[in-house]
Computed example of a mutant assay.
Amino acid sequence: MDVEELRQRLEFEPESLPLSSGILRQCKIDYDKVDSALSWLEQADNHHLVCLSDTFYPVLLQQISDPPLVLFVKGQLNALLPPSIAIVGSRNTSLHGLDTTAKLATELSSLGLSIVSGMAAGIDGAAHKAVVEQNGKTLAVLGCGVDVIYPKRHRQLYHQIQDEGCIISEYWPQVSPLAGNFPKRNRIVSGLALGTLVIEATRKSGSLITARLAMEQNREVFAVPGSIVAGYHQGCHDLIKNGAKLVEDAADIIQELTSLSQYHLEQLHLRHHIDDNETSNLPFCSQLASLLTSVGYETTSVDAVVEHSGKPIDLVLVQLLELELQGWVAVVPGGYVRLKRS
């Protein structure tokens, strides 16, 4: 990709594409910046520039009102393919909050979902770290250049994320982490995801901005409740009062995501470089989540599961076995029960 090609790919029709980031304006008048972007692209095989019209541009991010016109991506480009869940929360968090984050991030990642967050201290870092430890895919969206490590305490995590996931930014390389960048960054965090999970947010937490943006983008919002005494959870409780789904385990999230996840996969199949072999194993939620919602916490017969799910019995039996092996359901006299994952 040369300077002229990059400039052409960033051309737009004002009435059809919003100028969301200033990148286009910079590209039109500052070819030095384009040169610097191309220089960064050539520095390593895991450096990528993804324009709005590219087939690897995230499906759901394209649907928001102000998608970035170009993404700088460092790491594994195919980490952009699986459906994802955003996990956000306060920087100052409790040990219980960190444990809860690790538990939910691990469960969701084990189901084939990517975990999106902002690599901040606290809940963000705990979510990324939990996924990295099980070699899952996690996406870190930065409020600075993709080559700038912020916060510095996450230097090791920054590099580990790139093994299976990727670092993402709409900002040019070497852009500093200015305070005004982060609220704008949050629309990408929520825009990439099927839904946003908020853990331990105070009423002044920046994670509530991400939750609000998710609502505006017609995405699901989830929140983990906590003590009414400690101040860590006030923001989460407010979200629940205003319609966010209360979450106790990953199953509470999975059962809400089937239709949007299916849309995500359908869009992937329409892109020329993605075939059935690449997407057949991506998201648990599109394969098994609808069946999981057909199994109650009380004994549910196989006939009831078949009737509720609308799936043929042979497929139901296969998927029930898969759910059992993954620890989501258990066989009991008379049928199956859904388990609380501990």
Rank of each mutant, 00 (worst) to 15 (best):
D2L: 08
R7Q: 07
R9W: 01
E11T: 15
E11Y: 11
F12A: 11
F12E: 03
S16F: 05
L19E: 15
S21Q: 04
S21C: 06
G22L: 12
G22E: 09
I23E: 00
I23P: 00
R25H: 10
D32W: 06
S36A: 11
E42Y: 07
N46T: 10
L49F: 03
L49I: 15
F56A: 09
F56Q: 08
Y57V: 03
L61Y: 01
I64L: 09
S65C: 11
D66C: 10
L69Q: 06
F72P: 05
V73N: 00
L77Y: 01
A79M: 09
I85L: 14
V88C: 12
R91M: 08
N92G: 12
S94E: 05
H96N: 13
H96Y: 15
H96P: 05
L98W: 06
T100S: 12
A102G: 02
K103S: 08
L104V: 07
A105Q: 14
T106M: 02
L108N: 03
S117K: 11
S117C: 13
S117L: 09
G118T: 13
G122D: 01
D124Y: 01
H128E: 12
A130I: 06
A130C: 07
V132K: 00
V132G: 01
E133T: 07
Q134T: 08
G136Y: 00
K137H: 03
K137P: 01
L139H: 01
L139Q: 00
A140I: 05
L142Y: 07
G143H: 03
R155F: 08
R155W: 04
Q156V: 12
H159E: 09
E164M: 11
C166N: 10
C166I: 12
I167D: 06
W172N: 07
Q174T: 09
Q174W: 05
S176M: 08
L178S: 11
G180K: 15
R185G: 05
S190N: 07
G191Q: 08
T196H: 02
G206A: 05
L208S: 13
A214W: 00
Q217C: 11
N218E: 02
A223V: 09
G226A: 07
G226R: 00
A230M: 10
G231E: 01
Q234N: 14
G235I: 09
N242P: 04
N242T: 07
G243S: 10
G243T: 09
E248H: 10
I253C: 01
Q255D: 13
Q255H: 09
L260V: 14
S261K: 04
L268V: 06
S286V: 15
S290W: 03
L292F: 11
V295W: 00
G296Y: 03
E298W: 13
A304G: 00
V305E: 00
V305A: 02
V306Y: 00
G310T: 14
V318A: 06
V318Q: 06
L320V: 11
L320W: 03
L321T: 14
E322L: 08
V329H: 04
V329Q: 04
V329P: 09
V332H: 12
S342I: 15
